[in-house]
Design a protein around this nucleic acid. Structure first.
Length: 423
RNA sequence: GUGGGUAUAGCUCAGUAGGUUAGAGCGCCAGGUUGUGGCCCUGGAGGCCGCCGGUUCAAAUCCGGUUACUCACCCCA
């Protein structure tokens, strides 16, 4: 059906776009105050970038990508996430030759072929930040404090911060063995999917939500206890910094993220009241990704925030902080001769900087007044034959219910001043 | 991909012992006031009862299938 949007997509109607624009403004302001600059990459990339970058064995690559062949027989994929494309652009444009770290942010649609549910869509919008070329834990810290600053700028309440470290290629294999051994001893208490996960990616068993699995794995050793010296130091510097800034967080040894490229720090920001899909932001460090993508051996760290989920949480909390735009005035005419005069007046008022609306259907005075009332204008200027002859406007101030006459020649000036006085 | 719920007017929803022209509130349009909004009153427009098939003299209502929406699983923003 041509009047039906594809599953998992959304139309943003005028009633919602002012809130969106306001959130986008908070995102841009906050990002630049942290020294990040916007980068815009294509909405599609060569499929290989995501296969290599995110990892062949991840859910995204295995079953969630919008992949198709273009007319030149190239395999193309609508981007399912933002980090790999940013890394690609960083390498292609040789940004590593400029002062490091490169501090970049992006905002735009991402695509994943999933069954939609509350807070999950096939096209959704992510705001993300990447810092490339430095291993400093102070940047890991920024990846947590920056989204928090965005939330606070938007007035979001009730979110919590979970952090963990999943080590690096030096220490993770050893932990994997330790974990696997511990899991084997409780294997028959685990659910079916956990048993199959054990061999492929035992870390995933840790974030299974099945109560029995959680109970069975309650006492398995945590990754943080097996970190190598470098990873351990990195993590403790980060937690020290978080404490120093009085950022409340939860050490969550079960936090494991679904992308292969993460190393060391991983974190998630959640709003529990959102329901099943409660992560409004998440990210981590990816010290091997740049090299994996064919670039120099440079570390990186980043995060992404789901704008739809943020908006969902704000609406749920009844947040009305965004500016509601209000039309200044409505020009009423009586059709016939006054119509063209009204059109000219509307044009002049708009050019003077006022937001003006009028009737386009030659409706009755009453209907026009009603329409103006619904639009919520400050005033209605009536231009009938009577007024036109006397070169005046009959201005009705809608909030007060009062009326006054304004000379037609000075209308723009007077109405503009009235607006400035009210603001 | 799997499971549950739902599908009647623009919106929110009534409407099953199957039975004339399928209803309400809100919204929209018009009139009540041939030049003054909100409140009130009156009238009007607007429905393939998701779609296909079956049962029946008769289906919005019962049965089967299908599609869409929705919530959840998996996983993620």
């Amino acid at each position: 059906m041509i009047t039906k949007r594809p599953r998992g997509t959304n139309d943003l109607l005028p009633a919602q776009t002012s809130r969106w624009q306001w959130v986008e403004e908070m995102v841009r302001k906050t990002s630049s105050s942290y020294g990040y600059q916007e980068i815009r990459t294509p909405m599609f990339e060569h499929t290989e970038l995501f296969e290599r970058g995110i990892g062949e064995a991840t859910d995204i690559v295995e079953k969630e990508m919008y992949t198709f062949s273009d007319r030149g027989d190239r395999s193309i994929t609508l981007r399912p996430e933002g980090t790999a494309p940013v890394v690609r652009a960083f390498l292609e444009n040789k940004l590593y030759a400029q002062p490091l770290p490169a501090k970049l942010f992006y905002m735009g649609p991402m695509f994943r072929y999933e069954r939609p549910q509350a807070g999950r869509y096939r096209q959704h919008t992510q705001f993300g930040v990447e810092a490339l070329g430095s291993a400093d834990p102070a940047l890991d810290l920024e990846m947590i404090t920056l989204p928090i600053s965005v939330y606070q700028a938007c007035g979001l309440e009730g979110f919590s911060v979970n952090i963990n470290s999943i080590g690096c290629p030096q220490c993770r294999p050893a932990y994997r063995e330790v974990l696997l051994q511990a899991l084997r001893s409780v294997e028959d208490e685990l659910c079916g999917s956990c048993r199959s996960r054990m061999e492929r990616n035992p870390l995933r068993v840790l974030d299974c939500k099945v109560p029995n699995c959680r109970a069975a794995t309650a006492n398995v050793p945590a990754m943080v206890e097996s970190l190598c010296g470098d990873c351990g130091d990195h993590f403790s510097v980060l937690t020290t910094l978080l404490d120093r800034l009085d950022i409340a967080y939860v050490n969550n040894p079960r936090l494991v993220r679904g992308f292969d490229y993460y190393t060391k720090t991983v974190f998630e920001l959640t709003v529990p009241s959102l329901g099943a899909q409660d992560a409004v932001g998440g990210g981590g460090r990816y010290d091997g990704l740049v090299e994996e993508c064919g670039g120099p051996s440079l570390p990186g760290v980043g995060f992404a925030v789901g704008i739809e989920r943020l908006l969902l949480a704000l609406e749920q909390q009844g947040n009305q902080d965004f500016p509601q735009s209000r039309l200044d005035g409505f020009v009423v005419h009586f059709g016939g001769a006054t119509k063209s005069e009204a059109v000219a007046l509307v044009h002049e008022l708009r050019r003077s900087g006022l937001q003006i609306e009028m009737d386009y259907q030659d409706r009755s005075l009453k209907a026009q007044m009603k329409a103006a009332n619904r639009l919520g204008v400050r005033w209605v200027a009536i231009l009938g034959g009577d007024e036109w002859e006397r070169r005046v406007l009959n201005v009705r101030w809608m909030d007060e219910g009062s009326a006054s006459e304004v000379s037609l020649d000075r209308a723009a000036e007077v109405l503009l001043r009235a607006k400035e006085e009210q603001d």
